[in-house]
Amino acid sequence: MEVKPKSACETCVQFNADGLKKLGVNTSDFDFVVALAGNPNTGKSTVFNAMTGLRQHTGNWPGKTVTRAEGAFEYNKEKFKLVDLPGTYSLLSTSEDEEVARNFILFGKPSVTVIVVDASRLERNLNLVLQILEITNNAVLCLNLMDEAQRNNLEINTRTLAKDLGIPVVPTSARYNRGIPELIQTISELANGKIVCKPHRIKNIPKNIEQALEKLSAEIKEVYPDIPNSRWIALRLLEGDRNIIETLKTGEFV
């Protein structure tokens, strides 16, 4: 596996503006499913609108989107179905308000997960990012609200960030359509395997939990040698998550 995160400027040259078609609600016959995940109020719906040409409601308060919405765009002859999700703080909780998003991120098997974060509140957003990186190998960080971060005098080194997280990082200001072409290009490269991620795995897990995780995930791998996220499944088992116990029995996640 090779890490090849790109900075925004390497990709923008390659963006093929003629290859982009916003398809609106027409989501039939898609080639890839792309999920938009992230904390509440980070601009997921705004990114969604910018890419599909739709007009999902947006609003400056957490919890504006409560149901999932679908749209599509075509890029270089390939059709991407985009799924806008309600905001979530965590995949570890069991609260009902976040269930829709949690389930889609965990079981919707998106080809690419776009994690939209608020650039000026990176640290708190990373809580969810690091959890998502435990379960997927194909993700891109959409560093949204860059205009706001700049106004607040924050300087973000996207290269370091991409290296630390092991996934491509694209700075955007979705409201002004800045960075959206780069995002689309990156999504397309991820979907086609031109970029390979090596996602960050959480390091600061306390010893006793880490040992338990290793023990469990080794056993899981024995039964299902092909699954990529045995560690996450182990984590959920430790939590006693019913959904996971069921899927484990049926083996449906492979």
């Binding site: 570890l92 069991t94 609260s95 640290e123 708190r124």
Partner: peptide
């Protein structure tokens, strides 16, 4: 329970 987890997630 849930409210504890939410507080942790909120930082």
């Amino acid at each position: 329970g849930d409210s504890r987890r939410r507080l942790l997630d909120l930082g």
